[in-house]
């Protein structure tokens, strides 16, 4: 069965390592914060200028001056720092963030990502996504494997305007975990109960399938 939003978040959480500074995009990536494994410390970076994002405030703690990049009210974790947007993107662009997790519309076999603009629809803007994909070495893209109409989002060439070129190496969809290298998707894990055949059918770009594709585990 396809992964739920929570399972996607749980699987990404397994990529967290002790001492990581992590930027989580809006949507499913944000849920990863709920599944940080016991016994490891990570610090969440919010690109509006907060390193060490804590949980949402209680009703009493709400403060209009304390928000995250999704414009939600948040708190600062112990050991947090707060700084300007220029400083924040110096961290991001300078490659100091250990892991970035963000959503996308499409990725392709060359590591291109399209996530911000659908021609003909209203364009709201890229926010910090272009800086994040250009600056980070370790990026995980999360998205559904195919559209509601069954069209693959893992392509030979992205069809939508790009957010970044040649910058994506890992993709977690609701069906599979894949790595991108040498101009192909490499199937690493499949969602529990999802067949390799279904993944092959829903992957338009070149896909390398090893003899054995393990099922994902979440713990």
């Amino acid at each position: 069965m396809a992964l739920s939003r929570e399972q996607i978040a749980q699987r990404i959480a397994r990529e967290l390592e002790d001492g990581f500074y992590v930027n989580l995009g809006i949507g499913i990536p944000t849920l990863v914060a709920n599944y940080i494994p016991d016994g490891i410390e990570v610090m969440l970076q919010s690109e509006n200028g907060l390193l060490g994002m804590g949980p949402f405030p209680t009703e009493d703690e709400i403060d209009a001056d304390m928000i995250n990049a999704g414009k939600q009210t948040v708190t600062a974790a112990t050991g947090a720092s707060i700084f300007s947007s220029a400083e924040s993107f110096a961290m991001i662009r300078g490659g100091h963030v250990d892991l970035t997790v963000l959503g996308a519309f499409e990725v392709d076999v060359n590591g291109n990502i399209a996530s911000w603009m659908i021609p003909g629809k209203l364009i709201k803007g890229m926010g910090g996504a272009m800086d994040l994909v250009a600056g980070a070495d370790n990026i995980i893209v999360t998205m559904t494997h195919a559209s509601k109409h069954g069209e693959s989002k893992l392509l030979t060439n992205c069809t939508l305007p790009l957010t970044g070129a040649g910058c994506i190496k890992k993709v977690l969809t609701d069906l599979a975990f894949l790595e991108i290298k040498d101009g192909a998707f490499h199937l690493k894990e499949r969602a529990p109960g999802v067949s390799v055949e279904e993944i092959i059918e829903k992957t338009e770009g070149k896909l390398i399938v090893p003899d054995h594709v393990p099922e994902m585990t979440f713990a």
């Binding site: 690109e47 300007s84 947007s85 220029a86 924040s88 993107f89 991001i92 662009r93 890229m126 926010g127 910090g128 996504a129 272009m130 800086d131 250009a134 600056g135 970044g164 070129a165």
Partner: peptide, 25 residues
């Protein structure tokens, strides 16, 4: 892009007319 926007302001104020960034390439 947000980081480019911040840097455009920073550079403008610091007397730097332009800069290179991988963002948006």
């Amino acid at each position: 892009p947000q980081g480019t926007l911040a840097e455009k302001m920073r550079a403008g104020g610091a007397g730097i007319p332009a800069f290179y960034t991988a963002t948006g390439y």
